[in-house]
Amino acid sequence: MSIENNDTELDCAVEQGCDAIELIIQPRETDLGDFKVKRLLPTRARKMVGPWIFFDHMGPAQFGPGQGVNVRPHPHINLATVTYLFDGEILHRDSLGSKQCIRPGDINLMVAGAGITHSERERPEVTNSAHRLDGLQLWLALPVADEEIAPAFYHYPASEIPALNVSGVAVRVLIGEAYGVRSPVKTFANTLYVEAQLRAGQTLVLPEAPERALYLLSGSVSAKDTELKPHCMAVFNDTPNVSVRANADSRLAIIGGDNVGPRFINWNFISSRKERIEQARQDWAAGRFAKVVDDEEEFIPLPP
């Protein structure tokens, strides 16, 4: 997805939790036209969790015929985007010539590196009928040594993502290593991304990571004496063997990994260098980014 303006660090509400939780972030809703997203990262209170610098929950949204996802071509640098759906379908196109539908359980990994342009739309047969969308899109800040690598696109179908049972809890290891299994999704730094579905009364020990956070998609879970409600993100410290207990049937995502150092963010550009972002802004304004193959006519203008 694209950021609509330069106000990238949201002033989201935060609160304190138990002694294992550094803070709890409440989402800020952002209007993308036909639907709204819940944005958790970056915020002024917490810009990143490990290498993750952007976290959007798209939906759940119900579209009528003629409505849907229609994000025009826009640029990125020095980051990688990760798209994961629970419901619905999105058509990805980019300036490398990639054309890929993402469906529930798949992972699309787009590495912007030195620069890429992409669009996120829907196939006409999807848009023409009533349909739903629910999913997460996240951005990874690339390590400094990899910021200017050649752009690339990777698609991982749902069948390639490890699924396992952890003490009765259904878990998928989307990126990185957890619970003794490793995802095939390409990484550039120590990165963690796990999905879990708990039935009421079940508990799950969180995987260890230098930095980590839990996003609750639905239900209710408790960490010690702190209850987490849907659509909040709890940022945990490095206390070992922290577990969460489901007070109701719940679905959650766990992210984390190594701190890759501070980043500057401006519109859809992320970099360790302010001057690189300014160059990217000038390049987009001047039309120097490559166009999206088969989607060359429209684009999102550079915000002031």
Rank of each mutant, 00 (worst) to 15 (best):
A130L: 06
A130I: 06
Q197M: 03
R276P: 02
R276M: 09
F269W: 07
I107Y: 01
T239S: 10
P304N: 15
H57E: 11
D19F: 07
L204F: 08
W139L: 06
P157N: 06
A80H: 05
D283L: 09
G115Q: 11
F153C: 02
H57F: 05
P27W: 06
V171Q: 06
G287C: 12
A61E: 11
H57A: 01
E122S: 09
V185H: 00
D249C: 03
V293I: 13
R103H: 13
G50D: 08
S183F: 00
C232T: 14
E227Q: 11
V242Q: 15
V235W: 00
A285S: 13
V194A: 10
E278H: 03
E296M: 09
P60W: 07
D34V: 02
L41D: 15
L96S: 14
E298K: 13
E122G: 10
A223G: 09
A170C: 10
G176A: 03
I277W: 03
P51T: 12
P262G: 05
V244S: 04
Q282K: 12
P184D: 09
A150T: 15
S250A: 13
V69F: 07
S159T: 09
K99S: 12
W284E: 14
T191K: 12
M58R: 02
R281E: 15
G97D: 01
W267V: 07
R273Y: 11
G105A: 12
L198A: 03
G59A: 06
C18G: 15
V144N: 08
R93L: 11
P124Y: 02
D94Q: 08
I161H: 08
L109P: 04
E227F: 03
P65T: 00
A286F: 06
I77N: 02
A246H: 10
N78S: 12
G287R: 02
G17D: 12
D7Y: 06
L198I: 04
L32T: 00
F153Y: 14
P184N: 05
T8W: 09
D87H: 13
S159W: 14
A213P: 04
L228M: 07
L204T: 06
V293E: 08
P301L: 04
V82M: 03
A45T: 14
V173Y: 04
M1Y: 10
V82D: 01
M233G: 04
A280F: 02
G105Q: 06
E211D: 12
V166M: 12
D87K: 15
A145V: 11
L41I: 08
P240M: 09
D225L: 05
E278I: 01
E227G: 04
V173T: 09
E148M: 11
R245T: 12
V49R: 03
P51G: 04
V169A: 10
A20Q: 12
A196F: 03
R172Y: 05
M58S: 10
V14M: 02
T8I: 04
A152Q: 13
I25G: 09
E125S: 10
R93Q: 14
P303N: 07
G33V: 00
Q279A: 13
G257D: 01
Y193V: 00
D56C: 03
P157T: 01
I161E: 08
